[in-house]
Amino acid sequence: MGRDRRAPARPLRGGRRDGAHPAARAIVAPGAVTVAGRDVRVAAVVVAWREPGATLEAVASLLASTIAFEPILCVAQEYEPDDLDALERALRGHEVIALADNIGFAAAVNLAMGRALAMGADWVLLLNNDATIDPTCVDRCLVEAARHHRVAAVGPAVAYAHDPSRLWFAGAAHSRRLALVWHRGHFARPGNVPASADSDYIPGCCVLVSAAAWRDVGPLREDFFMYYEDAEWGERARARGWHLRYLGELLCLHAMALSSGQDGSRLLAESAAYYLERNPLRYARDTPGPLLRLSRTAGVLTVWTGYNLTRIRPSQWATVGWAVAQGIRDGWNGTMGRRQADDRAPRRAGATGER
């Protein structure tokens, strides 16, 4: 599936940086922090599809963290040799997993999570390569997790990178009956960040995941390829008695789905339209029990499809509208994995992340 390219090792950083958040936990060893009276090891995973410049910015924000990750794992998909070399130089002492093909966000996360857990991580931060974090982000998330019982994941408030005055995520809801998902606090001002609370799911853009929960709940659904896998994982986690916590502090900026061509806009690009239509429908169709399956399927095909259709630019109805129709067809029939049209698509500049 790919090859590991590990940069020459050097000691990871330790100690607290000047100007760290006063609530940050003290580092006791590289990659280990003290939380609730015990030492925990924290790793980080960055999933990248092309766009090396954005990936380097995400990595730089991790390296500036008030804790030292052990290790940072970057899954670099479809990278040119020179870009891989630059990434390895930036991640000296950590690890780059180079893949010749785009295997999808879910599969890339599962690959890196397996590696991180095998190396002894207690918590793993998942970060999009089009996102950056505040230096105290992981510290604050660990503190939030320690305050509650059986926390599977914690995610902070996230704002748009192109407009930090607007929130992208401040908690999320997942309708059990209609299979609909939405972000709370969307487009709210950062001065009015909603308070911390339980969340039905935490988006994969920036989420600190418990290794114990991951082992109990299982990996992401790889057949989704990208989109909706975080909501589905959150439902499984909650069904097993875990809690997912939204942290009411703005600690992450997100460039927002550049991989699918949205570039911070609510308007859908062709690739995003396909997966956002197909995956919720497949989730609904996979529901055990005829009544709930009917309710979820109806919710997706009426409310969700209707909403997606309002997000198509008039000049792109022929392509994006057709992608929505293909998503309905494949979601209904169970044709999953990477969209065939994406397999034939040429490389293009400005594509980053999988969210």
Rank of each mutant, 00 (worst) to 15 (best):
E80S: 15
R355S: 15
A118S: 11
L250C: 14
H149G: 00
F225Q: 02
V96A: 09
A257E: 12
D163Q: 08
H149Q: 07
E80M: 13
N110M: 10
E70K: 04
R177Y: 03
V181L: 06
E277G: 11
V209I: 12
Y307M: 01
A153H: 02
E229F: 02
A9E: 15
L276A: 04
P71H: 09
A323F: 01
R17T: 01
G171R: 05
E80Y: 11
A36T: 12
P81I: 05
A48N: 07
C74Q: 11
S199L: 08
A239P: 02
C205K: 04
V303Q: 13
E80D: 15
E235R: 15
R140E: 11
D101H: 13
I103C: 07
N279T: 09
L276C: 10
L247E: 04
A323M: 02
A100L: 13
G248P: 06
Y307K: 04
S260T: 15
C206G: 00
E95G: 06
Y160S: 10
Y201C: 03
L99M: 06
E88S: 14
H149R: 06
L292F: 02
E232Q: 14
G353P: 01
T55S: 13
A349V: 08
A29F: 01
S271I: 14
A9N: 08
A116R: 00
V45P: 13
R17D: 07
G261R: 11
A213F: 09
Q262H: 06
I72M: 06
D139P: 03
V59H: 09
D343R: 14
E95F: 01
R25D: 08
R266V: 15
A86Y: 00
A231E: 03
